[in-house]
Structures are given as C-alpha cells and as structure tokens.
Amino acid sequence: MKVKDVVEKLNLTVFGGEAGLDREIKGGYVSDLLSDVMGSTDEGTLWVTLQSHRNVVGIAALKDLAGVIIVKGFVPNTETLEDSDREGVPLLGTSMETFEVAGLLYRMLADDAELPG
C-alpha cells in the first residue's frame, strides 16, 4: 500500500512532501518520543505522532520513513513544511486521535505489509 492510498482512505491533509506520496508503506509506528522512533523504526515506516516540529521531518528523512501522520489537528509551522517539501517526506494530518488513526491504519495494512504480531 502506498502513502497516497492511506491519504485517500483516511482523508488525510497533505501538509507537504508530496513527492513522497508514491512511497510504499512497509509498516507503522506510534510514538511521541523522538529517540524511540530513531531507535525502533525502519525504512518505509509510517509514523503516527502528535509532535509537529521540524525535528520530526529531520528524523523521518534520516530514517527513510514512508511519511508522518500528525494527529489531533496539530498543524506544522512553515519551516517544517518547507523541510518536508525539500526532503520529500510526506507530512500528513488528521483531526483523529492516535488510537483511532492507528487502529484504522493497522486494519488497512494488516494484509498488505509486514507487521509485528
């Protein structure tokens, strides 16, 4: 499943990084601790978080993540959007809470990607 499929199915806002919307999603990860994401994710992961500052894009780019979903209606600032465009990291948004978006995502990816458990 590609990032753009998730955008469509979950009706996500695309804040930036449209160049990466064709990336294949290999799994998901939920965390608001940046070192946890740094240490525990792999390439192609779709990251769900309530953090919305520039370092989120920095980490997503360094780890070659598929993209980031920012929950609860948080909106990244202009610099963060510019970073996501430059790095081609899809920065997505939803008004849903983490639990809800993670649950929907899990169901969508269950048949499609390598997931734990």
């Binding site: 601790l33 070192s35 953090q51």
Partner: peptide, 16 residues
Amino acid sequence: SMGFGAGMGLPNMRKN
C-alpha cells in the same frame, strides 16, 4: 516537551 530527553539517547548510541 519536544519529545527529546527521554533518556534513550546514550542507550541508542550503545546499541548502534
């Protein structure tokens, strides 16, 4: 509050 400083930095360094 930015999500840093969880005490995972040095352990992450050791692991990697």
